[in-house]
Design a binder for these strands. Structure first.
Lengths: 211, 211
DNA sequence: CGTTTCTCTAGAACAAGTTTCACTATCGGA
DNA sequence: TCCGATAGTGAAACTTGTTCTAGAGAAACG
């Protein structure tokens, strides 16, 4: 930790200028890449800031200018991965009849992807749930992405009702927490599957259209 | 972090002898008390191992003998607090008709208790979700306690069905994750309430007895 | 009691996240 | 093209979790 009450960098207020030059964009990308690679190896603990800096050919101070903490870095890494995931999932929408089944299948597909890189999943999810208020904006972005994936899977006609949004929030809660119990070896893959299917029943509950 | 692959203490295998002497029990209690007090002040970051050791009149090495990491310490602190909570809640069981409402009210009561000590809640919940495999047994104990509280609130006649246990697990997931979003300022108290009420609907779903 | 074996203490040492500093390189505008 | 502002570099310093060591104390046990 080691963080003074109000983070007060020398001069600038918050992030780098929103418009990055090409070189800066490349640096950022190198950093995220190194982060993901190290995370794939050994999870949260294996992502060491000095090593990330070295592997991405950037000074430690620069790394901290781009991502003000390790958690920021890993949450940004998760954003990045989620983006890919969203596109991949969008390409092959689930074919099920019921919205609940579509969401459950989509999440299980995402889960299988995470199983292929369990260490990376560990790093990202641990960072996400460990994040404190200073990371709220970034975590919020991840949350919105996840919500978008679920809403996509539901395949609604119109905008979601408040009830449906509540259900989606609860599904997200379950998703994150179930991942954690799996990652820490306290729940099996089968158990995660059951939990996801169970919570997805809430969707049918909030859209009880009678034909 | 800084933890070698396999934790290999000099001689003893795991924890202190299961039977603590009186002095040892007192030490353990002082440590937990100091931990809770520091956590109440400033949350996870404010619980510094050196300070816990000092405040409980114990050497740093001893602290680590009792609790092999900060996360272990905070999870044990949570166990302790949950025990109190369980007893308190048990004394005034909710009077509602429906099991779902009973569970929702019980959890909201617990939530209000946490709101009185938000920093303490922060420390405990962050530790809980950040815990890795080495803390699994302790985290499992917390999980069982939470499950017991929920099952108590449901007030079942017989043993719960597998379906009901799934619902309870999902409720627990939602409970932890909703707490986190609240603690990190990304969800309001009202939102947590809605999420809890939403997920509790699963209970009615798994016990659709028609009179 | 004396011995043997733990346990506890004090304090140094180490690892990794974070900050700081003194420079140098790059960029955008006059 | 030159200049001031901004960004990046390298290295050291600082904070806090964790480990290690040598010796003092307590407990079990003959």
């Amino acid at each position: 930790m080691y963080r003074t009450e109000v983070r007060q960098m020398t001069a600038e207020a918050k992030p780098a200028s929103l418009q990055l030059t090409e070189r800066q964009e490349a640096r950022r990308r190198r950093i995220l890449h190194a982060s993901a690679r190290l995370a794939s190896r050994g999870g949260f603990d294996a992502v060491q800031m000095r090593e990330v800096a070295e592997n991405s050919g950037v000074a430690l101070g620069t790394l901290y200018r781009y991502f003000p903490s390790k958690v920021h870095l890993l949450v940004a890494t998760m954003q990045d991965q989620l983006q890919h995931m969203h596109e991949t999932l969008r390409k092959q929408p689930p074919a099920d009849e019921q919205p609940a089944a579509r969401v459950a299948h989509t999440l299980m597909r995402a889960f299988r992807a995470l199983q292929r890189e369990p260490h990376l999943a560990d790093a990202m999810v641990r960072a996400l749930t460990f994040a404190d208020r200073s990371v709220s904006p970034e975590v919020d972005t991840v949350s919105r992405l996840t919500t978008a994936i679920i809403l996509d899977a539901m395949g609604l006609d119109g905008p979601p009702t408040p009830e449906q949004l509540s259900a989606v929030r609860v599904i997200e809660h379950t998703w994150h927490s179930a991942l954690i119990t799996w990652l820490s070896g306290r729940a099996s893959i089968a158990q995660v599957k059951i939990d996801i299917e169970t919570v997805c029943r809430l969707i049918d509950l909030t859209a009880p259209r009678r034909p």
